[in-house]
Design a protein around this nucleic acid. Structure first.
Lengths: 220, 220
DNA sequence: GCTTGCTGCGAACGGTGTTCGCAGGAATCC
DNA sequence: GGATTCCTGCGAACACCGTTCGCAGCAAGC
């Protein structure tokens, strides 16, 4: 029979959606079998009827996120296509907290991951790169995008959490930097607050741009 | 009085060393207050007399690892200096399991981290890069090195663990790749096992090389 | 109508990080 | 010398975690 009130039905998709919602609002570490089960008003054992364990649950959540990324139309300038595509993947990951942590777990990949890899390979190969370059460029680009997404997501979450304690701690770090001995750390002190300038998106774009500049030299 | 047998003394340094040893042999996830305390034949509460919690313990372990990296002598070719230095940091991290996970936690940094940053800045600035380029190049290089170290360490640990189950699973993935529809995934199938070739060190060096090639264009 | 199989889930097991409070010894002070 | 204060070790406990077991109850099949 139906649920007593407006409880969502206990299906695989609904469970993954609940986990993903939790990731987006409180981070991967807030996902537990119990917190997910709470969204359905039940206990953790119920989840195991639809999912083999926590790892599979998170893998499914990641694949659901990657389903959001739209594959780029090919035929345009490869550099712009790669830039937009990398931003698209990063954006999808960052829209869901630190879900990128799952992508860096080293576990086998899901279906949407190979779909994205295919699109990346298509862009690289039609751009005229040799196959071996395509292979490791795909590898390095994926690593860079997920690592950046994880890094900026974690910093966001850390800020949102202990807004009081963490902000003060970072202020203390900045203060510590200011007080560094100019003899022992001449360059660090000379750069001043230049080190702390720039938003995460700018840093990502600059790093990607430099990588693509270097990649262009590998064309043949 | 002394310990009853050959138990190491319960000092801050010994505790960090025990935790680090555990990280190196079984990975970060094997570190618990109890497993660390076991090395001293005691319970978890004893650890808290010398360390404020698990986070600080891991941060101290990471800083101890970073103490191993030797700073490069400057005045040489900046490209070669950066290549060797990046390899030095990566090597230190990989010598201790997946300790790089701690470096990607987004928590405030330790003393040896700013020492390394200073050395990197020194190389970049004396090479003639503008200050703003130095700032984000430092940021991106650090991210790339720690992300690569984390990625390859995790893959190593995963292999060492379920040698039976995981190897079979990866074989299944490779088989799955072979069986992908050539219509839906033309490039992926056309590349064949080119995608799986190359050792981690080679991938790291190629990605770094491309980044440095691109960075060279930012010189002024 | 009886059986089979699937879904929900209460209870429990062994693990985790962390806190409390009590010992006992060393150092300090009168 | 005796009393007091501080520091270190640690047994016990709390709240939480992932996961398993086994028992209900209901739907479909024969």
């Amino acid at each position: 029979m139906g649920q007593s009130a407006s409880r969502p039905a206990l299906t695989r998709e609904a469970i993954v959606a609940a986990a993903l919602d939790l990731v987006g609002r409180r981070g991967v570490e807030a996902v537990s079998m119990r917190t997910v089960a709470d969204a359905f008003g039940t206990g953790p054992a119920s989840i195991y009827r639809h999912v083999s364990g926590k790892d599979e649950l998170l893998d499914l959540a990641l694949d659901r996120v990657l389903a959001e990324v739209r594959t780029p139309p090919d035929g345009r300038d490869w550099r712009q296509a790669l830039t937009e595509f990398a931003g698209e993947v990063r954006g999808a990951l960052l829209r869901h907290g630190d879900i990128a942590a799952v992508a860096m777990s080293g576990r086998p990949v899901g279906g949407n991951s190979v779909r994205i890899a295919e699109a990346l390979l298509a862009t690289l190969r039609t751009a005229g790169f040799p196959d071996d370059v395509c292979a490791w460029a795909l590898d390095r680009l994926s690593l860079y995008v997920t690592a950046d997404a994880l890094d900026t997501a974690r910093k966001r979450l850390n800020e949102r959490a202990g807004a009081e304690a963490v902000a003060r701690h970072w202020a203390a770090v900045a203060e510590h930097y200011r007080n560094l001995s100019a003899q022992e750390f001449p360059h660090t002190t000379a750069m001043g607050q230049e080190l702390f300038r720039g938003d995460p998106e700018g840093r990502f774009a600059l790093g990607l741009g430099v990588f693509l500049d270097g990649l262009a030299l590998q064309r043949r």
